[in-house]
């Protein structure tokens, strides 16, 4: 993950707001991987994610004149990406959570003998388990666990109170842990 400080963006954002497309191109290059990986894990389709990532930056360009540096530029981009991804999921009519079918438990209790293989197995299981939970739960987990957004930033991106962020995160983790077991441990019943 490439973390970019707000100061690095500030200059390019100011130039882009003045109509400098080259400066905006730099912003796109700096943030494209972050936006893409979020959308890819939301949609689980590479081509669709690439197309939507472009759309996100086009929308960002269009919204740039009205943007104020109250939040990080990268957080604002993730907010646009989140809205775009949810819209796309609605179009695909996949907003409704599809419960895991019987006998389709993703977690494999018997990982491969080699550590590398086991690690790959676990990654694949986590990716698949993410697609099994509701998009609203998936997005908050991706934004928190991978993009590293704090509670205040999550509240800003999702448009909810910080208290809601806390409870929604807990529910999202509980839902994911129903399909993914990162390690053998006692159940917390």
């Amino acid at each position: 993950m490439i973390e970019v400080g707000p100061d690095v963006d500030a200059d390019d954002v100011a130039r882009a707001q003045a109509g400098d497309m080259a400066a905006f191109g730099e912003l796109v290059r700096r943030h494209q991987d972050r936006v893409f990986r979020f959308i890819l894990r939301m949609l689980d389709t590479r081509d669709e994610a690439m197309e939507l990532t472009q759309d996100v930056f086009v929308k960002a360009w269009q919204g740039l004149p009205g943007w104020r540096p109250e939040a990080r530029f990268s957080t604002w981009l993730l907010q646009i990406a989140r809205n775009a991804a949810l819209d796309q999921l609605r179009r695909r009519q996949r907003v409704q959570f599809a419960p895991l079918e019987e006998g389709m438990d993703i977690a494999d209790a018997k990982p491969g003998p080699e550590a590398r293989y086991a690690s790959r197995q676990q990654q694949a299981q986590l990716e698949r388990a993410l697609q099994r939970i509701a998009p609203e739960q998936r997005e908050i987990l991706l934004l928190r666990e991978i993009e590293g957004l704090g509670y205040a930033e999550l509240a800003n991106v999702l448009g909810v109170a910080e208290g809601t962020v806390k409870s929604r995160l807990a529910r999202a983790r509980a839902a994911l842990l129903e399909h993914f077991h990162p390690q053998a441990g006692a159940n917390h019943e």
Partner: peptide, 14 residues
């Protein structure tokens, strides 16, 4: 462990 599993996910560069 869940947090660690997220961090271990491979990068997906464009």
């Amino acid at each position: 462990a869940l947090h660690d599993a997220f961090l271990a996910l491979p990068a997906v560069p464009l």
